[in-house]
Structures are given as C-alpha cells and as structure tokens.
Simulated scan of single mutants.
Amino acid sequence: MRGTKYKVLALLKQSKAIVSGEALAKELHVSRTAVWKAIRDLDKMGYQIDHLANGYRFISSNVLEAEEIAFSSLLSENILIEKSIDSTMNVAKLAAMNHQATPALFLTETQSGGRGRYGRPFFSPEGQIYMTLLLEPNQTFAELPQYTLLTAVAVALAIDEATGKSCSIKWVNDLFLDGKKVCGILSEAMSDFETGQISHVTIGIGLNFSIKPEAFPQELQTIATSLFPESSPTITRNELIQNIWRNFFELLDGLPDTAYLDYYRNKSFVIGKVVNFTQRGVNYTGKALRITDAGELVVQTTAGEMTLSSGEVSLSTIDGKQLK
C-alpha cells in the first residue's frame, strides 16, 4: 500500500488538471478502493488534495519532501527527513562518524532535544523548520569560511523574499522579524585529532515558519514570532528550505568575495546600539561600533574598545531590551 499512495501522489503532482479515481486506478493497475485508501493515507500525512465530484487535484502542501528540496548542490539521496528525533545536530554528527556522503541535510518535523548556543533548549512545535547541514571541508580552523555569517545572510535573503518584509540580524546568529526572534543558527566544527584538520562542520537552523502568537509559551510571546503568524504561508517549507541552501551555496561558491559581509552589516540591528554582555564572568556595557571582516563585534566600553568573537560572549540586552 505504501507503494500505491506514492504512485498516486506522483500522478497527481504531474497533472495540473483534475484526475478521476478511475483514471488513477487504470494507470496504476489497481482497484478504485486502493486509490481511495491511498488518497485517505495522503490526507492523513498532511498532503493537500482537493476531493471533487469528478476526481482529485493536488494542492501545494507543507509536507517535507527531499525531492522538492533537492537541487544541484544538495542531492535528494543526501536529504534525510524524520518525523521526530532528539536533535538534527546530533543526528548529523552521528552520520559524520558513519561516513555519510556530503553535503547532507537532516530535517525533522519536531525535536525533543533541540538546542541553541551554550546548550540552551528551545520551543520546537511541529510544522516548523528544524534542519542541520553537514559539510566536509577538511580545512584548518583558520581556513574555514565564516559559516554562521554566510548562513545568516542566506536565511535573511530567503525570509525577505518569502515575506516581502525586511528582517534583521542580531550578532551573530539570530534573525529577527518585526522586532522578535524568528530564527536561530548554530555552527559547530568536528576536528580530526591526527591531522589537525576540521573534518566536518554542522550548521543547524531552527526557523519558526507558521505559529500563531498565542501558541507560543507565555514567556516567549513578547520576544518570538514566525514568518507567517497570522496569514496563510505564501511559500511551502520545501521551497523556503531550498531557497536558503541555494543562497548559501551560491555565497560559498562566490568566496573570497566578501560582499555578503556588507549585507550582513546592513542587516545588523546591533551596530550603534548600547549593548550589555558578559565576557569571562565580567559584565560590560558599551556601544557596538562595527563588525570586522572576521565577523567580530567591536564594542566601545569604559575599559576601551573590546573585540568580541562569537564563541566568547552572549549579548544580554540591546538599548535596554532583554534578549533571549
């Protein structure tokens, strides 16, 4: 039966017109009852299918599909989708140890152990975007591209195109829309002890796709949002995911061109603001001056200019507004 429902789905996708149950049964050499059961199973899986008097018609759906995400730089056989896992980052790291072909993308509908920087847990309802890209750069740490910044730019470009709005970036790895967090990015490296090379890099993205404001936990309602909090999405998750990674690989292929850094700086809502941060257990307050070519944040404090790298600090407030 599993084979039949996917064959039915493929035929419906291929046709722009209404397809009768009889035509589907004839094409697949199965009974009308088998077609009806296949359609019912597809409905349960979340596919949008019009049930009409003269047949069925496929409507663009929000079900994650490798074939709909894949493109030349990211092959469908290297896109792995699960219903529920603990964390796409953990699954990607395990896959790296098992010699998974790269680049590879791991996605899930929901995760029980999702985490951000410093191991912070985060809200992970179904129907959003939780994914990790696995790369195999085999470079030294100094040779690595600035993956977090590249990814932030790739996501920002995709969000702006999808929503018609202009998102902003909180240095170094969070994206905001309408003043609230909509996406977080986490990049981590795995090293080869013998060679000293970075063998693998994992880039995790948690993006709120469509969540009504009241569906967030009370403590998040004033600081978090989604791309489509009130209206129906104008793009599918598959399309958005593909756009993100298309942007990413185009930027990566364009290196050493650093035009993406200017875009990142223009998107930053930190520059020129008063920020509070903690570094090595000491609290500081200062004005964010600029972002360097290395992606570091330069802050003017009473102790002088301080240059912050992404791994050292966590910004706590900007212009007095608490950040999470």
Rank of each mutant, 00 (worst) to 15 (best):
V299K: 05
E250T: 12
S231F: 00
K287D: 01
D319R: 08
F277Y: 11
S232F: 00
S268T: 06
T317D: 00
Q279V: 15
I291C: 06
G286H: 03
I235L: 01
Q300T: 06
Q242K: 12
S232P: 01
F277G: 05
A288P: 06
M306L: 10
R237C: 03
V274E: 07
T301G: 07
N283E: 12
I318L: 14
E239Q: 13
S310L: 14
S232A: 11
Y260Q: 07
S232M: 02
I241M: 04
E239D: 10
V275I: 12
V298E: 02
K267Y: 09
T292D: 13
S316T: 13
G286P: 04
V275C: 08
K321L: 04
T234I: 04
P233R: 01
T258L: 15
N276W: 05
R246D: 03
S314H: 10
I291S: 07
Y260P: 09
V270W: 01
S232H: 07
L255T: 09
K321W: 02
D262A: 13
Y284T: 14
T234R: 05
Y260D: 08
K321H: 05
T236L: 00
D262T: 12
N276C: 15
Q242G: 09
T317K: 08
E312A: 14
K287V: 15
L251C: 05
G286Q: 06
G254P: 03
D293V: 09
G281W: 00
V275H: 02
Q279A: 15
V282E: 03
K321T: 07
L315W: 00
K267V: 11
R265G: 13
K321I: 06
D262K: 10
A288H: 08
S310G: 09
I271A: 11
F248H: 05
N243D: 06
D293H: 14
T236A: 01
F277W: 01
Y284I: 14
I241A: 05
R265M: 11
V298W: 01
I271Q: 10
R246K: 15
T278A: 10
D319H: 10
V299Q: 02
V313F: 06
I244C: 11
I241H: 01
E305N: 12
L308S: 04
T258C: 13
K267E: 04
T234L: 03
W245A: 04
E250Q: 14
F249K: 06
N283D: 15
G286K: 04
A259V: 13
V313T: 11
G295W: 03
I235D: 00
P233S: 04
P233M: 06
N266H: 09
A294K: 10
T292W: 04
I241N: 03
T234F: 00
G286C: 09
Y260G: 10
D257M: 11
V282W: 00
T301I: 07
L240Y: 02
T278G: 14
